[in-house]
Design a protein around this nucleic acid. Structure first.
Lengths: 187, 187
DNA sequence: CGCGACGTTGATTTGCCTCAACGATTGTGG
DNA sequence: CCACAATCGTTGAGGCAAATCAACGTCGCG
């Protein structure tokens, strides 16, 4: 799916409008292990992942890496706390695969909203979907055991299981790699 | 804080525009224990809590009530899954205190967006803030023990502790009432 | 080859749950 | 005005899911 198709699912844009929209975006590429957003950097952009895979992680009180999200093809991602408050980021956004993104800076975003007000609607709806997905995730977190969460995740997200190493999956689910290993040995 | 002040923090509205805005809202009142949204009902509205306190809860696999959110004065709440997909709600929104809300139905919301496009911007920004708060909550969930989460919650949210009974707080935090009780006995 | 990163396996520990019994408080009907 | 039931919180004994710790296997790569 292209960005154009993605956008059309949320708002209707003419050819001209889409041309305006895309003119505000900047393409960037990231090799695995490189960072879209570094620790303590101020997040200035919203990223649309054209192709690839990233992880968003922070550090727990004990200094352990904790993955909060993955992002793959056709997801908009950012660190909204840093983006909205213009504060140094406590989260890192890092490519897992070779990743190509469209980058929409806050400045450009505001200009785009001026020139093409439908952009507000687009992002309003994107955020609603993202919030909804977050809510679903919270429901799973609270109602399933760690084992059930793992089984559910690999079932719903089979593709993912191939793309990220097991220890990252463990971190995302909030369990230890050993525990995942023990579940797998039973299957 | 009034709704007007609330809105002004996100967008600038003239007196006339605010008059338009508020004309789309309907005031409703709920006694403690009554429901803004019933189980299996389709959520048709976004609610702005003028005054009061509500809880949003669902049921776990084992049939236990699980509280996912509280809502208090000056929060917009809804069940976005039900609202956006027009599906029966798996969540219940229920008043804890006598609660007065502004109710904005989906139909009215769309009309309002037509007549006053700034509404898109308002809700885009509200959703961004809500997503951000959700992210912070996830960070606490993953990096603090249950005991630390409780201590953090009552510290940051002292007011809350008075307004909701302990067993609801326990549910919200994903622990048992007994466990909260044991933490408190140590303090 | 040998090193480092990732995954596996088993023994032990622990944070929190479950269950059960017991206060404290509040509202209700006789 | 008192008995009572219901609701909420407390306390303690025992159990379990998942963590921790440690050792070992395996694979890719400089």
């Amino acid at each position: 799916m292209s960005l154009k198709e993605y956008v059309q699912r949320y708002i209707n844009l003419s050819e001209e409008e889409y041309a305006v929209f895309i003119s505000y975006l900047e393409t960037k590429s990231f090799a695995p292990g490189t960072r879209l957003l570094a620790y303590e950097e101020r997040c200035q952009s919203r990223f649309y992942i054209k192709k690839g895979c990233v992880r968003i992680y922070g550090y727990t009180e004990k200094g352990k890496e904790q993955i909060y999200h993955f992002g793959i093809d056709n997801w908009w991602i950012s660190n909204y706390e840093s983006l909205l408050n213009d504060t140094p980021s406590h989260l890192v956004i890092e490519a897992i695969e070779p990743t190509e993104v469209y980058c929409l800076t806050s400045d450009k975003f505001e200009q785009l909203c001026q020139q093409l007000p439908k952009t507000e609607r687009l992002f309003r709806r994107i955020m609603e979907r993202a919030y909804m997905a977050f809510q679903k995730r919270l429901e799973f977190l609270f109602s399933l055991s760690s084992e059930e969460q793992y089984r559910h995740f690999i079932e719903v997200n089979a593709a993912f299981t191939q793309r990220v190493p097991q220890y990252m999956l463990a971190s995302y689910l909030g369990v230890t790699p050993e525990f995942i290993s023990k579940i797998r040995s039973k299957m």
